[in-house]
Write a protein that binds this DNA or RNA. Structure first.
Length: 396
RNA sequence: GCCGCUAUGGUGCAACGGUUAGCACGUAGCCCUUUCAAGGCUAAAAUACGGGUUCGAUUCCCGUUAGCGGUACCA
């Protein structure tokens, strides 16, 4: 089988060659080892085997080279003798004379048609480019600029695939990465702005980016750094740009309330998101661990209780006293909450930190949350007191 | 196999003949502290190997090795 395939005397134009039955076609990786450059049999004046429909191949010049200018890799030159007589049109099936056009044929025709001036694509196409250049020439069209970009590899340095997790940009979106953070991260794969600053908003990237600055080395997709960019954007983005993203998350989780769209509700929403953002890593965190800020229906995390409610009886008593003290406040803001809480701790002879941590678990159900008194202000007096009393009940 | 591309800490990039080889992520430690982040400071950590060229190589040339890509009637 193999001998027939590589032999120059074989009827290379026929579909019979590769076999319509798949078992006659060895796996590509294996055939490559024994393979030589394919020349169309018609060069020897031999017609296709009778009865089989021919495919149309490109008659590559014998000898000489084909070169092109790559904006990233520079002047490239390939020997024509390394390029096989590649197939342009598949052989026809049934009644049709020819089948569908192959990739190289399609893209070149399409790009000429669309008057494409710059072909920017992955470096995996660099070896195929001379074939396309040959086609442009054969069709009398102007050859565009080519720019091949380094490939993005997985952490194991193999080509990025499903195995590496998300492979589709939309998946990063659903995971909760901000589009602009993702863009910033991606831009830095195979390119650097020059200075030391890596945090660049899209407008700045647009201004600084240049194809000539692109590196020729493949880059590894570094997920931790992507996450870092996301936290940076979550923190530094003007709050008005972040709010719609958070709103979308809350809507998705059924936590959204229309009163947060305008007026005082909007102001509260903005302040709350601003308070939460330094601790959020991914957008869905706003609806998950921050749930207690947007809904009264939340669970107290067992691990948090384990950590900060170590002595239930003592905690219960402290929380009960705190609830009373806070309920009595006539002004609900940071300092009064702070003073009242510390007074309870002092009276009970415990460290303020102990009480503070216990309260945090009681009012937001998490061990991790924004600074306590800011949290209290945002939640409001009525809610804080109620949650403290609920916690007392929960403690038995 | 053949052809081609690439090679700076674990990762992404700087340094484009002369620097104590720089920055960022990550890692470790310290500070801050009300949890956890953030932030600040510090530390460990690199020019793949071998030959040239040069007064001087991370940088230019050659070879080796390694990784990647291409080599399909896939795209």
């Amino acid at each position: 089988m193999r001998a027939r395939f590589t032999s120059h005397s074989a009827p290379l134009c026929t579909s019979k060659l590769l076999g319509s039955a798949s078992q006659t076609v060895p796996r590509f990786a294996e055939t490559a080892k024994v393979r030589r450059v394919t020349r169309c049999s018609c060069r020897d004046g031999k017609p296709s085997a009778s009865g089989v429909k021919p495919a149309v191949r490109f008659k590559v010049p014998v000898g000489g080279t084909t070169k092109f200018l790559d904006v990233v890799f520079g002047e490239r030159e390939f020997s024509n003798d390394e390029i096989e007589d590649f197939v342009l049109l598949r052989s026809g099936k049934g009644e049709e004379e020819f089948g569908q056009a192959m990739y190289h044929m399609s893209v070149v025709v399409d790009d000429i048609d669309m008057r494409i001036t710059h072909v920017i694509r992955g470096a995996d196409h660099i070896s195929n480019t001379p074939k396309q250049v040959l086609l442009y020439r054969a069709m009398g069209a102007a050859i565009p600029f080519f720019a091949h970009l380094p490939l993005i590899l997985g952490a194991d340095k193999s080509r990025l695939s499903k195995r590496h997790g998300a492979t589709d940009v939309n998946m990063y979106r659903t995971e909760g990465f901000l589009p602009e953070a993702f863009r910033n991260f991606l831009a830095l794969l195979g390119w650097a702005p020059g200075g030391d600053e890596e945090f660049l908003r899209t407008s700045q990237l647009l201004e600084k980016f240049s194809l000539q600055g692109v590196s020729r080395t493949n880059a590894v997709f570094d997920r931790p750094k992507l996450e870092w960019f996301n936290t940076q954007y979550l923190q530094k983005l003007p709050i008005d740009e972040l709010l719609p993203e958070v709103e979308a998350q809350l809507r998705r989780s059924g936590l959204w309330k229309d009163e947060w769209a305008t007026g005082a509700g909007r102001e509260w929403f903005s302040r709350t998101v601003d308070l939460l953002r330094p601790r959020v890593r991914l957008l869905p965190d706003f609806a998950s661990w921050s749930r207690a800020f947007f809904s009264d229906e939340f669970e107290r995390d067992p691990a948090a209780k384990e950590k900060f409610w170590k002595e239930p009886a003592k905690i219960k008593e402290l929380l009960r006293k705190t609830a009373d003290a806070l309920a009595a406040l006539t002004e609900w803001s940071h300092d009064p909450c702070d003073h009242a809480t510390r007074a309870v701790a002092e009276a009970a002879g415990v460290k303020a930190g102990l009480l503070i941590n216990a309260i945090r678990v009681a009012i937001v159900g998490q061990a991790v949350a924004p600074p306590l008194f800011d949290t209290m202000v945002v939640l409001g007096q009525e809610r804080v007191v109620r949650r403290l009393r609920d916690a007392v009940t929960e403690l038995g």
